[in-house]
């Protein structure tokens, strides 16, 4: 019998996230014969349009339509999924802020194996799935073996599986709301209040052509000056990785990454940034990436076009001087 794989669809403003198609590719790598069902939760017309959209690439679409899910709260959704998912199913969920909220607890409630943040699959042998993960912010990879014979919840790293040109399908939309609601609404111990929007900063890094981006390798707040000097010489703006914002050396609006901004510059200079997927995943539009890092094994060198293995504290001032010389010549 073909393995049953379910893909939980994340959506916003009535449009499915890119990960929807990536999960079809991921399911195909787990088992080429798998039948893949999209699971979509939400409310009203937005939900309906997402269902329509995904029905063109999934053979079957399960929808859960309830006003309580107009803003999807993972704590309320989880018990509904437990009611509708069959035993021994395999559930794929994107490893983003929503998936991280939903998935670990779901695996417990389904009594299924949990395999977090998979970046690749290398086949199934006797009910055991071989997968690739990363550890230590991507400095090393691991193979893991997960016993999925009694079901599994697997989170998929966004961007790791190439979405196939959608095989057109005319998926059946099945309304699972009644089944999901049987016994009433649970998860009321966590109540959604509101969204607080990010503050707007003084520069909009999403519009910059040249970004000089700084990470923890800068070591000290006093050293930030050399980064601004370089950016000025190049005619670019300063952006950063998360630890710089956590340390309050720069404002949040300058953070590049999944919990910060998605940027699309022409040139991106990564200074003392290791290259975690939450950072580099938000570089769009194929910029020319230059990485400077003292660790030759830093994962940023895998996504960079040009790399320099050096101490940024020495290298940056010299580079700035040379650019300034060039401009005044």
């Amino acid at each position: 019998m073909a393995r049953q794989v379910f893909a939980y669809i994340i959506h916003k403003d009535g449009i499915a996230d890119d990960t929807a198609l990536e999960m079809i590719a991921a399911a195909g790598k787990i088992d080429p014969d798998a039948s893949v069902t999209a699971v979509v939760a939400g409310a009203g017309s937005e939900l309906a349009s997402v269902c329509n959209e995904v029905a063109s690439s999934f053979a079957e679409v399960w929808k859960i339509d309830n006003q309580a899910l107009a803003y999807v709260n993972a704590e309320m959704l989880r018990p509904m999924l437990v009611r509708i998912l069959p035993e021994r199913g395999i559930v794929l969920i994107p490893h983003d802020h929503f998936g991280m909220d939903l998935a670990p607890g779901l695996s417990i409630k389904l009594d299924a194996a949990y395999l977090p943040d998979a970046v690749d699959f290398e086949g199934i042998d006797e009910g055991k799935l071989k997968a690739v993960r990363e550890e230590h912010t991507g400095q090393v990879s691991t193979h893991v073996l997960s016993d999925i014979s009694e079901g599994a919840v697997i989170t998929i790293r966004p961007g790791s599986f190439k979405a196939e040109e959608s095989k057109s399908s005319e998926g059946n939309v099945v309304d699972k709301t009644a089944e999901a609601m049987e016994g009433g609404l649970l998860g009321g111990a966590r109540r959604f209040l509101e969204i607080v929007e990010a503050e707007v900063g003084d520069v909009d890094i999403t519009k910059s052509d040249i970004l000089v981006s700084v990470g923890r390798g800068i070591e000290d707040e006093d050293n930030m000056e050399i980064v601004f000097d370089l950016a000025e010489a190049m005619g670019g703006d300063v952006s950063c990785s998360r630890p710089i914002v956590d340390a309050k050396w720069l404002e949040k609006s300058r953070q590049v990454g999944t919990s910060g901004q998605t940027v699309k510059p022409k040139v991106y200079m990564a200074l003392g940034i290791s290259g975690a997927f939450q950072h580099v995943g938000s570089l769009k539009g194929s910029p020319f990436v230059i990485a400077i890092n003292k660790n030759p094994r830093a994962p940023i060198f895998q996504v960079a076009d040009v790399g320099i293995v050096d101490d940024i504290l020495d290298f940056i001032p010299e580079l700035t001087d040379r650019i300034n010389d060039l401009k005044s010549a």
Partner: peptide, 24 residues
């Protein structure tokens, strides 16, 4: 454990960056 680590490795990921060498 239902999920077990088998090994550690360093992936061969495409070509990676062109590393600039020489004096500063």
């Amino acid at each position: 454990a239902k999920t077990k680590r088998l090994d550690y490795f360093v992936p061969e990921l495409g070509e990676g960056a062109e590393i600039l060498e020489g004096s500063t």
